[in-house]
Every structure is written in structure tokens, then in C-alpha cells.
């Protein structure tokens, strides 16, 4: 059961791969299962690598969108795979 409705945001804009995923994983470690986390990234690889990371870790991607030109937002719900 989670009380979080608005996802917390990890701002990884301007960081090159794999740093957006590293920052997101570090933030995920601090939070309980069921939390929503959103990452903002400008590196094109993050669009592919955040979902791949989520799959490997047992999290679920609940949304992905280009929120501004060249800025991708991917939201994940942390699952039991979170450490």
C-alpha cells in the first residue's frame, strides 16, 4: 500500500548513458515497493535503458513521454525486485 500519488522526480537531464539509470537506481534503493519514480533524461539511450532496467529489477514502467523537445520522462512503479 503506497500513499504516494505524485511521482518523485530524478532529474538526469544532460547526463550521458548509463548515468540516468544509475541515478534512478540510487533513488529507487531509498524507496519502498509501490513507490512511483519519474526520471527526466535527454540521452536517447535512457528511453530504451530505463524500461530494460525496470524489467531486470522487477519494476513496472507505467508511462513514457517526450515532455519537451529532446526530454524524455519515464515513470516506473517500484516492484518487489527493488533493493
Amino acid at each position: 500500500m503506497s500513499e504516494v500519488t505524485e511521482p518523485e522526480t530524478v532529474d538526469a537531464r544532460g547526463l550521458r548513458c548509463p548515468l540516468p539509470v544509475v541515478r534512478l537506481a540510487a533513488a529507487a534503493r531509498e524507496r519502498p515497493d509501490g513507490s512511483l519514480l519519474r526520471v527526466l533524461a535527454t540521452d536517447p539511450a535512457a528511453r530504451h535503458d530505463v524500461p530494460a532496467w525496470a524489467r531486470m529489477r522487477g519494476h513496472v514502467v507505467v508511462g513514457a513521454a517526450e515532455v519537451a523537445t529532446g526530454v524524455w520522462a519515464v515513470t516506473v512503479r517500484l516492484g518487489p525486485g527493488a533493493r
Binding site: C17, P18, V21, D43, P44, A45, H48, D49, P51, A52, W53, R55, M56
Partner: peptide
């Protein structure tokens, strides 16, 4: 800056 279109199309990790 674009990762491999092959890895991306497969949905696997493109970094490392």
C-alpha cells in the same frame, strides 16, 4: 549519440 538500433528494437539494455 543514438544507441544500437538493433539492441533498442529488441528492448534489451543498450548501455554497457
Amino acid at each position: 549519440l543514438e544507441p544500437s538500433h538493433v539492441l533498442a528494437a529488441m528492448g534489451v539494455l543498450t548501455h554497457g
